[in-house]
Amino acid sequence: MTTVAHHKLSLAQALNRALRDAMAEDPTVVMFGEDVGALGGVFRITDGLTAEFGEDRCFDTPLAESGIVGMAVGMAMNGMRPVVEMQFDAFAYPAFEQIVSHVAKMRNRTRGRVALPMVIRVPYAGGIGGVEHHCDSSEAYYAHTPGLQVVAPATPADGYALLRAAIADPDPVIFLEPKKLYWSKEEIEFPVRAPGIGTAVVRRAGTDATLIAYGPTVPVALEAAEVAAQEGRSLQVVDLRSIVPFDDETVCAAVRSTGRAVVVAESSGFAGVSAEIVARVTERCFAALAAPIRRVTGFDIPYPPPKLEHFQLPGVDRVLDAVDDLQWEES
């Protein structure tokens, strides 16, 4: 019999608990990276894991991201389920060759003989007043690489459920953790029942237009919908949860139900995930659309310094302005 328990956890705490539960259940799960041992990670996501599971299960490495990811590839080849932490989004780039040339391709290169069950955790995106190289939205690089799965939780419950699913998955997962949501809390019911990787969810019902968001922009979209409701407009909010695989079915059903959509994403718009969403939804739902799909994204600029970052981040007003532009007068 399963005992149901409720805990109010922040996203950071939920991720920590997911790691702890996965490591307790499966002795092949190992966690490593920079400062993840005694310190518990710069965001404390690995807090207490070395103390609980020992130095062989959660350990610090030399400061070399390619080496970290490359070593994880080898350990995954040899029966382990490594979870590695890239300290910040922009510090993951030295590992890019390993991720693109090996992590993503090993299963395909070997006709499925060598699987790489591994998770690359990346604290990502902005909104925390971080200095340069600490706030990149790097999802498009990964999403553009066949063989990777890319997920971005927006809530503590999803953080827990998606990380457990990612660790259990037979294929590699890029796990993007929105830094600015680390401290947001919610009541989570354990055991967590949540759809797996590749499933989007409608976070808020609405009938006039659909806001499509993922990771750090989900709370922005929800807030925008709340404000819009007060102004008499009913906005639906879809949280992608998973960028790859992409849940066309849920997203398209949502857009068809309203006929209008705005994609809200923090990363630069050009050639970004937001552009892909607009393209694929338009290809599939053109006849149901009353207006072109609009995007509210970061500008096509290097991430700004802390005192200017509020210009870069999609905010409620910008989202509502885009909603206003959805050719309402013609309907």
């Binding site: 070593m71 590839v73 080898g74 350990m75 040899n78 029966g79 490594p82 390993q98 040339s101």
Partner: peptide
């Protein structure tokens, strides 16, 4: 040289 970190991982797992 990209295979060399993999070799370390296989050895460390062993």
């Amino acid at each position: 040289a990209t295979q060399l970190p993999h070799a370390v991982g296989v050895a460390h797992a062993a």
